[in-house]
């Protein structure tokens, strides 16, 4: 794995911040959905954005998958694009928990709602810890059902240099919901994030 020049301490720091952000997000989700959310340690990897498509090609090859993107930007040059990937099968499980009934809203709206909730609760928890606050663009469907996941990712990740891949797995009591989140980050934002991590590390 290419670590994009992150030191071991920076990596540990980032992993911990992400773990805590996930914990905060799952707590909020659990209260909102009125169910217990079992959380696994999210695995993170820093990769060149051009390697992203191949990473996901196999996992979503035979399944109908949804890809939803949402831009985020905060202070101190923290910015990027979050992409949530999940299988359509999973989408219907979570939409029932969110209280959607069939025919209630369009499938597209359901998908953007789910992704927006996952993305913003997680990133808000992350921003809180680094004393930042984020704004978000409206979620945008990159692909649902049709289209090859790898091709869609190729077209998107093309614009970015680096990607922080976060493997997130939510287990909701009797439903399992797995999704992947990719944070695509431009080069200068990576060094901004390193500076922030160093500042946190210095404080301890």
């Amino acid at each position: 794995m290419n670590n994009l020049g992150f030191s071991e301490e920076q990596r540990d720091c980032l992993q911990e911040i992400i773990n805590v952000a996930m914990g905060l997000a799952s707590d909020k989700l659990a209260r909102f959905l009125n169910t217990f959310v079992h959380l696994q340690v999210p695995s993170i990897a820093l990769v060149g954005a051009m390697h992203i498509p191949e990473e996901f090609e196999n996992r979503y090859q035979d399944a109908e998958a949804a890809l939803v993107s949402q831009g985020f930007f905060g202070n101190e040059g923290v910015r990027g694009e979050a992409i949530v990937l999940y299988q359509m099968e999973n989408a219907h499980k979570i939409s029932a928990l969110l209280g959607y009934e069939a025919g209630d809203v369009s499938e597209i709206e359901m998908l953007t709602d789910i992704s927006s909730i996952l993305t913003t609760t997680f990133l808000n928890g992350l921003a809180d810890q680094i004393e930042n606050s984020l704004s978000y663009s409206a979620p945008r469907i990159l692909s649902s059902r049709h289209g090859n996941v790898a091709d869609v990712l190729k077209n998107t990740s093309f614009h970015w240099e680096h990607a922080l891949k976060v493997d997130i797995s939510y287990q909701l009591i009797d439903h399992s919901f797995n999704c992947d989140m990719i944070l695509l980050i431009p080069g200068e934002a990576v060094s901004n994030i390193k500076n922030i991590l160093d500042r946190i590390l210095e404080a301890y």
Binding site: S26, D27, R31, F36
Partner: peptide, 8 residues
């Protein structure tokens, strides 16, 4: 822990 759900 970051996981502060009442059940936990």
């Amino acid at each position: 822990s970051a996981d502060i759900q009442p059940e936990m």
